[in-house]
């Protein structure tokens, strides 16, 4: 299946490529080639099914990574098409014209990461959160502990223990119980 990665690199230009497993290929491309690339993949290759669309926050690089997971349903081979977009101007091209189910993924990513997909329907419509008025919660600069302490206070008397120290105290240095114990 490696030949398809080579063909993508020749046609669209890839930044990196990887064969993680025989049935899982990865390729990183420029953001502007995403729509032509996916259109070509859907029209001319067996990768016709959009299985997943997810985002990762690379806050150190100041970038978001978008991962389009395509699947060849006959050969059961998946292809991860990865791209990086700027974290400040978080905008990506919508692929809802290729796969209608992408609307839901883009809606969720828009809500959880604040990435905007111009032209995609239901952008900004609440999907999981209701009445959220903070920065999108899946961004890594969102401090969940501070948010919880300020919005949902704990009952007095909650104790915190360091898990490693506690397990060592209870189960000994080995850190787990064995059948022989």
């Amino acid at each position: 299946m490696m030949h398809i990665l080579d063909e993508i690199r020749e046609r669209f230009g890839a930044e990196w490529q990887n064969e993680q497993r025989p049935d899982l290929l990865q390729i990183g491309v420029q953001a502007k080639t995403i729509v032509p690339l996916l259109t070509w993949l859907k029209a001319h290759t067996p990768f016709v099914q959009l299985t997943h669309l997810s985002a990762v926050d690379w806050i150190e690089d100041g970038e978001f990574q978008l991962t389009y997971l395509l699947t060849d349903p006959k050969a059961h081979v998946s292809l991860m098409v990865c791209t990086r977009i700027d974290r400040e101007q978080a905008e990506a091209e919508s692929i809802h014209a290729l796969w209608p189910q992408a609307v839901t993924y883009e809606q969720e990513i828009n809500e959880m990461f604040g990435i905007h997909f111009p032209g995609s329907p239901r952008q900004g419509v609440p999907f999981i959160l209701e009445g959220w008025n903070d920065i999108p919660p899946m961004r890594r600069d969102f401090d969940t502990v501070a948010y919880m302490n300020s919005h949902h206070p704990s009952r007095p008397g909650r104790e915190h223990t360091d898990p490693r120290a506690y397990i060592g105290k209870v189960f000994g240095e080995r850190g787990y119980l064995h059948d022989d114990d």
Partner: peptide, 16 residues
């Protein structure tokens, strides 16, 4: 329901 349990620091669940 008592004190948030293992989800005590989740962004969208209540604690008490």
């Amino acid at each position: 329901t008592i004190n948030g349990g293992m989800y005590w620091d989740s962004y969208n669940t209540i604690n008490r």
